[in-house]
Design a protein around this nucleic acid. Structure first.
Lengths: 136, 136
DNA sequence: ATAATATCAGTAGTATAGTACGGAGTCAAG
DNA sequence: CTTGACTCCGTACTATACTACTGATATTAT
C-alpha cells in the first residue's frame, strides 16, 4: 500500500495542502493516520476518495452534496436508486441554471445589438436606457 | 419629489432594510439625506438607482460590475461603447458558463441512464462507478 | 400618555470554498 | 550538523451578497 504525505497527495490531486486540511475540517475527508512525527499519511483509499471528490465537483456537485454521495456509498442500506435521485436532482438544478442563463444571454444580446454608438456619451446609451426602464 | 423612509423604499424595491444599509456600505448607493431624527430619506433618484441595480442583477451582473456601470454612467468622458464593452464581456462570461453547464448536464444524463437499478446496493451503482473511474 | 413599530449604528454571523500566516517541530541533503 | 524544505495547529482572511442582533432613539397609533 502506497503512502503519501500531505504535500505529495496534494500535488497528485492538484489541490493545495490547505485544501486537504479544510476537507478534513468539514469532514468530507476522514482523519488520516499519523506518523510518530504527527505528519498526516494518506493511502490509496484516501487518494480514490479525493479523486471522487474532484470528479464530482467537476460534475457540479457541491462539497455538501458530495459528502451525501459518499455517505450513501458507505451506508449499507442505501441503494443505487438513492444515488440516482441525487443525480437527477442535480440535473434539474443544472437545467434550471442553464435556462436562466440563456434568458440572460438573450437579453444581453438584444441590448448589445441596440448599441451602435462608439462615441456617444453614456447619456444616450441604449443599454443603460433599457436597463433603467426594463423595456425588454 | 417623493420621499421614502428606508423601510418604505425597501418594500417598494422588494429587498430588506439591511440590504440598503449594505449597499450604502459598499458604496453602490450614495449616502442618503437624513431627517433631523437621523432617519434616512430616499428620493426618486435613489429609487431609480435601486431599480437599475435590481435589473442589472437580474441580467447576471455582480454588484461590483453594476457599480462600474453606474460609475461609467456618471463619468462624462465615458461613452456608450464603454458600456457595450462591459455588456459584451458579461455575455461571453455567461456563454462560457452555459457551455460548462451543458457539458455537466450531458455527463449527468449519461450517468442517470446507466442506472436502472432501484434496489441494487451502492456497491454496484454505475453512477458511483463512473464517477470513481471517470469512464465517461 | 403609553404601547407598538421603525429606525439608528456597529458588530457578528451565514453560506461556499477555500487561502494566508506565523511560530514551532520534523525531515532530508550536503 | 546545519540549512532548507516540509508539516504541524489554530486563527484569520478572501470573495459575494447578504442577514441577524443589540440596545438606544424616534415616530406613529390608540
Amino acid at each position: 500500500m502506497e503512502h503519501y504525505k500531505v504535500g505529495e497527495i496534494a500535488e497528485k490531486i492538484g489541490v493545495n495542502v490547505e485544501t486537504l486540511r479544510y476537507y478534513e475540517k468539514i469532514k468530507i475527508m476522514p482523519k488520516p493516520k499519523r506518523k510518530e512525527s504527527r505528519y498526516r499519511f494518506y493511502d490509496e483509499l484516501d487518494l480514490r476518495r479525493l479523486l471522487f471528490i474532484k470528479r464530482a465537483k467537476e460534475l457540479g456537485f457541491t462539497l455538501k452534496e458530495i459528502k451525501e454521495l459518499l455517505n450513501l456509498k458507505i451506508e449499507s442500506t442505501a441503494t443505487c436508486g438513492d444515488i440516482k435521485h441525487l443525480a437527477e436532482h442535480k440535473l434539474t438544478d443544472i437545467e434550471e441554471r442553464i435556462k436562466d442563463l440563456k434568458n440572460i444571454k438573450n437579453v444581453l444580446i438584444k441590448l448589445i445589438n441596440q448599441c451602435v454608438c462608439e462615441e456617444v456619451s453614456t447619456e444616450e446609451c441604449p443599454i443603460l436606457e433599457v436597463i433603467e426602464q426594463k423595456i425588454i
